[in-house]
Design a binder for these strands. Structure first.
Lengths: 109, 109
DNA sequence: AGAGCTGTTGTAGATTATCGACATATGTCC
DNA sequence: GGACATATGTCGATAATCTACAACAGCTCT
């Protein structure tokens, strides 16, 4: 955490999967949603977003479909696969484990 | 968080500063302490540990002094500087901000 | 018709943190 | 003398994210 980053490294997949689990949507909207739900704290740059989505798709955790967005432009809508749902649960468990462990070190007497 | 890592990327400085703040000690002992306080969840590899210590020292956040360890071997004991104490507070604040934000996304309805 | 803004997807290169593997030395115990 | 735990360190690889760029499509205003 040398310089204020926009994300905690390694948590982007978790965030994206979580947002899609709440409601399937397209990349740009996912980034917006993360920002909004985190109270403007978390910001996903495009250079991180799209590679991450392709990565998740290649792993079979999400699936894409071209549709028209609310603003009438073409957009790729992503939905979770079954494997993706499993993966999300794992990511959450991992996050709880690690962040909990850090909090122990930071807060323990 | 693709593959189970031993750390959350970006939190190593925080962990090290925190341990030294609790009690000045040498590198190897710091790694042990992190592992033990985190219930074996967090593991710092030597390839991460020593570069991190040198980084922190160069930034003026910690200072080194050669002494004999409890087991009678030469060891570099690190202590926090004033700047290091300030830095630790910043790191904690940053961690709380970011981890809190992630929890919002993960846990929000 | 054109300018400019917002939405939308994408890629390339640089940066940086951590890891894995290796190298080296010393004190203790058998 | 040998094995083992303690202790510090470096090097190269890997992977995640960022910055900066490119492109295009609707919408609105003039």
């Amino acid at each position: 955490m040398s310089r204020p980053t926009d994300l905690v490294q390694g948590t982007l997949d978790l965030l994206i999967l979580r947002i899609i689990a709440l409601e399937p949507s397209h990349g740009w909207a996912i980034a917006q949603r993360i920002k909004q739900m985190s109270n403007e704290v978390l910001q996903v740059q495009q250079g991180s977003l799209y590679p991450a989505l392709h990565r998740l798709e290649q792993n079979g955790w999400i699936e894409a479909e071209w549709k028209d967005s609310e603003t009438n432009r073409r957009a790729k809508y992503y939905t979770l696969t079954d494997a993706g749902r499993t993966r999300l649960a794992e990511e959450i468990a991992q996050w709880d484990r690690l962040s909990g462990a850090i909090n122990m070190v930071v807060r323990e007497a």
